[in-house]
Design a protein around this nucleic acid. Structure first.
Lengths: 226, 226
DNA sequence: TAGATTGTTAATCGATTAACAATC
DNA sequence: TAGATTGTTAATCGATTAACAATC
């Protein structure tokens, strides 16, 4: 019944899925205990960071043995809500939107796509997996009917901000933005950017300027390597 | 001919595409000058951060007027390499891989997909845009022929690490990882994660724990709003 | 001129890392 | 027991913000 009282710092939240994927791998390969040092090596962190993070989750370890994999997985899954199902709508039935709707991985991790929408009348009615593309007029109704929490923006840059506004008006609580454009949302709405082209630009920059950024990046993979 | 001597801190690199998209919008709508305060408001930053960042790019402003939009755009584009063309290969010809290959936005921003690959023989030879899916055996040859700098991982989790290794072996200098799985690369190779499902998990966490994270996130959009 | 805005220094804030006593 | 590993405190590091003189 351990309960994390107050919300975790962003960098920790960012690492939670990393811990979870690794810990699942460990469990699947039959490993029962894992030390902070091992986790750190696997994820490119320091053992100190791992212990701090897990301590914030009230995950208790055992001297000389480390952390119990099954318990750690349970705590991480609970914290990330990986147990319950999340309902999402996708706006944009282009390549990216349909790819996501059809992506089996979403469902596997508890994200159910309960609607896909497009402003283009030619696309409306088209089949996407076991959904049909709906017109934007039906967005609000569908969000409410399914209590969709998450809106995914998969439209061209030019339309991104307007779609964000419509999703917010429809009542979703958080947005995943896949468009190149920056969008703004009211402070009450959560926003996570997965702006692929911006990511490519960052990557191109880092390639051209190696050794870049933080000391962390520079040293990555060298420290603590036993 | 201003030249940024040494590589910028990660957080700044992360903001560069944001500045660039906004500045392009401004130029397109005919705006000639923009102040640090305006940019800050548009992007949810403080004017102080904007001035610090632009100062690191050696972008000089003018008292009382701010920064010249056209000049700023040129400097940002140059710094991000948005002028030159970058060559990328995609591994994984599933929904996501083909969606990216067909995505016009990549080309628009200077990223040319010069090959798409899949381990599944049934997919090899299939048409994707104006490319044909190639077998993994041809990866290394294609990377070398086109001097591809970037490898995009668009395969299921289970295959992600191996694909990462193959891309590195083939000689790409940076990876964009779209798979849910964590991948590790040697320090000489750049890595940017766009792990969509992990992003959705983070989003779900933030939704359930509002006000979360950093003070910045909490205040976002409130400060400096005149 | 008066007022707005830059560029930069100094202060603050927060995250990461080091260090080490406690523990199994 | 001896040694490894946790949990936590303190130190370091780096990024953000505040403040303000310089400037147009």
């Amino acid at each position: 019944m351990s309960h994390v009282s107050h919300s975790l710092p962003r960098p920790v939240v960012y690492r939670l899925p990393q811990y979870l994927t690794r810990v699942r791998e460990l469990r699947q390969s039959g490993v029962e205990w894992v030390s902070s040092l091992e986790l750190a090596r696997d994820l490119g962190l320091t053992s100190s960071t791992v212990r701090q993070d897990l301590s914030q989750l009230h995950m208790q370890g055992v001297s000389k043995r480390g952390y119990q994999v099954s318990r750690l997985e349970a705590i991480l899954a609970k914290e990330l809500g990986a147990n319950r199902e999340h309902c999402a709508v996708i706006v944009g039935a282009g390549y990216l939107g349909t790819a996501l709707a059809a992506h089996g991985g979403l469902m596997e991790q508890g994200f159910r796509v309960c609607g896909i929408f497009d402003a283009d009348p030619d696309l409306v009615g088209g089949r996407v997996g076991d959904l049909h593309t709906q017109s934007m007029e039906t967005l609000s109704h569908t969000v409410k009917k399914h209590c969709a929490e998450i809106g995914i923006i998969a439209v061209p840059s030019a339309a991104a901000q307007q779609v964000a506004d419509e999703l917010v008006a429809a009542g979703v609580q958080g947005l995943l933005n896949l468009a190149y454009a920056q969008v703004r949302v009211p402070p009450s709405v959560a926003l996570v950017d997965a702006r692929l082209i911006a990511n490519l630009q960052q990557l191109a920059y880092i390639i051209r300027n190696p050794n870049g950024g933080t000391a962390k990046a520079r040293i990555r993979g060298k420290k603590e390597s036993t």
